[in-house]
Design a protein around this nucleic acid. Structure first.
Length: 312
DNA sequence: AAGACGAAAGTGGTTGA
DNA sequence: TCAACAACTTTCGTCTT
């Protein structure tokens, strides 16, 4: 009987044992607020909080009308998604407004808009978030990192770091900082290419942000780049793992300190791919890692020397 | 002919006086 | 602020497969 009821209202949990039948599967019934043994039906608890809405709705329109919450707030909207909007053509009841009222509402909306972004900080933020949106989109950056970058930008703005510097370079620096903090393998080069600002300007802003906001950056690990590069040149999991192993060994003999992590990763993949049937050229790997083939070459030469490996 | 190699000169960033 | 320096890039001629 329990098993056939609407699964949405129930959730099977496993915690403790039923004193009646000694089985450990329980079901929460969100309609009645009871915790019930899945096996024998014994009610163990009947005062659970019901987390569902207290109202009922039968159509989609009703759901929309009765719901009191909207989408979650987000740092990558300049007002976190919380702001008043004006409907100028229809009233609260859906009836068309008179022409006179419509004009009035349009005026009100205009003034509301002006008041909303009247402070320079708000105006700056709304511009910056638009730029962030554009850049993040271009770089295919996931939402979590975008939000992290937005948070960094807000802090930078609070500290007054944006004044006298361009919004877009601070935004680019915030994105790079967010990537570094979340250990996402993005090179500064990629961000520079997507941004209109020069590398010099972006890196200067990046260093400033780190210094003023006291950010501690995790050191970029070559392993982070392995899968990114491997998928780009079409290497399989086995080769990836082999490259990881090479890097782990290299770390032990301290052969990779202070080197470009992407170059190390590409070199490790180059060595690993040579053990396989599928060989990748230095050029391809270099392109995928966004370094030159000379760097790949030097790195892999040093790796096989330090690790006493030999290529097949 | 493509890929690998290595030398040499150049670039941009870091460090320490 | 500047020179020294390490890492990396660019370029190019040569060698290997």
């Amino acid at each position: 009987m329990l098993k056939t009821e609407d699964a949405y209202h129930q959730r099977i949990i496993q915690k403790g044992r039923c004193p009646e039948c000694n089985k450990s599967e329980f079901v929460t019934d969100r309609n009645t607020g009871e915790l019930v043994c899945f096996n024998c039906g014994l009610v163990l608890k009947d005062v659970m909080l019901n987390q569902r809405a207290e109202w009922r709705a039968y159509t989609h329109d009703e759901v929309k009308a009765k719901a009191r919450t909207g989408p979650p707030t987000s740092y990558s909207h300049y007002d976190k998604g919380l702001s008043t909007t004006f409907q100028t053509t229809r009233g609260y009841d859906g009836q068309r407004l008179s022409t006179k009222t419509q004009l009035k509402m349009t005026r009100l909306r205009k003034w509301d808009y002006r008041a909303k972004i009247h402070s320079s900080i708000d105006r700056n933020l709304s511009q910056a978030m638009a730029e962030l949106e554009r850049l993040a989109d271009k770089l295919h950056i996931p939402k979590s990192i975008k939000d992290e970058a937005a948070l960094i930008y807000r802090k930078a703005l609070d500290e007054g770091l944006v004044r006298g510097r361009s919004i877009s370079s601070i935004v680019a620096a915030s994105i790079y900082a967010a990537c570094r903090i979340t250990e996402t393998p993005r090179k500064i080069k990629e961000i520079v290419e997507a941004s209109a600002k020069s590398r010099k300007e972006i890196t200067r802003c990046y260093r400033l942000i780190i210094r003023k906001l006291n950010l501690k950056m995790p050191i970029m690990n070559p392993e982070m780049y392995i899968s990114k590069i491997a998928s780009k040149v079409g290497l399989d999991q086995k080769t990836e793992l082999k490259a990881m192993e090479i890097i782990r060994k290299a770390k032990r003999v301290k052969a990779i300190a202070g080197k470009e992590p992407a170059g190390i990763a590409a070199a490790a993949l180059y060595i690993a791919s040579h053990d396989n049937t599928k060989k990748i050229t230095q050029k391809n790997l270099a392109d995928a890692a966004k370094v030159t083939e000379v760097t790949v070459r030097n790195r892999y030469k040093k790796l096989i020397k330090d690790l006493k490996l030999n290529l097949k």
